[in-house]
Amino acid sequence: MSAPRQALSRPTNTGQGADREPRLLEVSGLTTRFDTPDGLVHAVNGVDFHVDRAEIVGVVGESGCGKSVTIRSILGLVRPPGRVVEGTARFNGVDLLGLRAAELRRLRGAEIGFIAQNPFSALNPVMRIHRQFANILAAHGIRSDAIARDRARDALADVGIAGPDRVLDGYAHQLSGGMAQRVVIAMAMLLNPAFVIADEPTTGLDLTVQRQILDLIRGLVQQHGRSMLLVTHDLGVVAQYCDRVVVMYAGKVIEHGSVRDVLTSPQHPYTQALVRAVPRPGHPLVHLTGRLPDLVDYPAGCPFQARCPHAFEPCGQVFPEPTTSASGRTYWCHLSQEREAAR
């Protein structure tokens, strides 16, 4: 990784002195590889981004872009043959990647809540729901069944489940998809974490239920001044529920900034293609040709070059330096030099 240009890369830090409070989450140079029979898969390649207090940050990209591996790396959930080979993920100043397993387990749940994509694989199918709540609390030192039941009831009420006892005494398979995801959200919020990570939390749900769940999650995050990292492939979810967005391609961040900046005037050609690929009546569909680069034989230069309509000579040689605007939007594209020269 080449060092970003100083003047351009740090505008969001200006005004905060050296003794400023550490960011809620600051991921830097995160690199994760998978050693497979086909070769070393470059899943995450030097990813930098941050989450501030009381904001919702979306991570968007298509399958294979590394968004899920990124959050699994942060949470210490990457298992062999995968491993995090480089980088830091500082949470309130503490590098999560340097923590021992037990310390990380304590943080997960207590300070970082996790909402998985499929509620039915997050819930234990053969254990009553109340026992699963009790287990979470027991892992964090609360061993009284009566207290556990009260806490679980409150948590279920917070996610809009009327008659929580019926749910607590039942099993996951007795729940609809929307109810099961509510239970998972209640579990993620149970220990009142300041930070929530949600990985495609509504992908398997019906559209009308999706809205209810997204509204619910946002409400729970905002009411308590929490922050959230929301991983999604749906630009509509980003547009309506996030404050900032990080766009990933082939294991790299290629653009990030406020949702308005990125979605209404995308600068990176890939972000532009993503935004234009959403079918809209009266607009021609603009689509990409080609496919994701081989993550084993990772290309030199910009990983998007082979599909980019604007690719020119430097794109095949070196990954571009970041360009940051006054509003903090940053993108990584050689075209920026051309644009600046034209100005």
């Binding site: 609809s176 998809g177 929307g178 109810m179 019906d206 559209l207 009308t208 239920v209 999706q210 809205r211 209810q212 509204d215 749906d234 630009l235 509509g236 979810v237 547009a239 309506q240 529920y241 949702v259 308005r260 979605l263 209404t264 935004v275 959403v278």
Partner: peptide, 25 residues
Amino acid sequence: RALLAAALPVDPDQELPPARLVGDP
């Protein structure tokens, strides 16, 4: 109406109509 309201516009400036259906099917 609920189904159309559930489609999330990609334009962040477009206002989202309120979700009016309750519960699951």
